[in-house]
């Protein structure tokens, strides 16, 4: 165990996260989610700018038109909470600072470009796989969904396969 780490012991943090996940199943009958809320907010923003486009996109129609208010969904409330909770923990630990986290050998600008690029790729994969590390890997993993376990190992496989090619970003 890395004693100099300013963060919580990873196993203890895992137990804490697992208890939160269990609480979500007890309270709501399903696990945690993160990407869905981003999808709803992003979709609603597109709808605001070009409402005509929404009607031509089967994806946006099913994302936004299935209820009266696409933002009145647990996904959005949950990520609001995630942001508040992250902020509280960050404030307590003195980690709230306007900064860019990056590998030691790249410029801030390079990091920004790759952050957006990584986000785009992840965002595409999330929707294709119908969920992210929270909703698929953690939540589906805990209830032993076969597809969630396949997804989880695919994530690690994709990341390890790509890691070599982007090693300059992080090392």
């Amino acid at each position: 165990m890395n004693k100099t780490s300013p963060y919580m012991n990873p196993y203890l943090a895992g137990v804490m996260l697992g208890v939160v996940l269990f609480a979500s199943f007890v309270l709501f009958g399903h696990g945690l989610g993160a990407s869905g809320g981003v999808a709803k907010i992003a979709g609603a923003a597109i709808d605001l700018v070009t409402p005509a486009h929404t009607e031509n996109s089967s994806y946006l129609v099913s994302l936004l038109r299935s209820s009266d208010n696409p933002l009145d969904t647990w996904l959005v409330f949950e990520i609001l909470g995630v942001i508040i909770g992250g902020l509280i923990s960050g404030l307590l630990a003195g980690r709230v600072r306007l900064e860019t986290l990056r590998g030691p050998h790249i410029s801030v600008r390079t990091r920004w470009i790759f952050a957006v690029l990584g986000g785009i790729i992840t965002g595409y994969g999330v929707r294709l796989a119908r969920g992210c590390t929270s909703s698929q890997a953690l939540s589906g993993g805990a209830v032993l969904s076969a597809g969630s376990w396949a997804f989880m190992f695919a994530v690690f496989a994709g990341a390890y396969a790509m890691a070599y090619f982007v090693r300059k970003l992080w090392n």
Partner: peptide
């Protein structure tokens, strides 16, 4: 059965 899970 509840169908509300997943990421939407």
């Amino acid at each position: 059965k509840r169908k509300a899970g997943g990421c939407g």
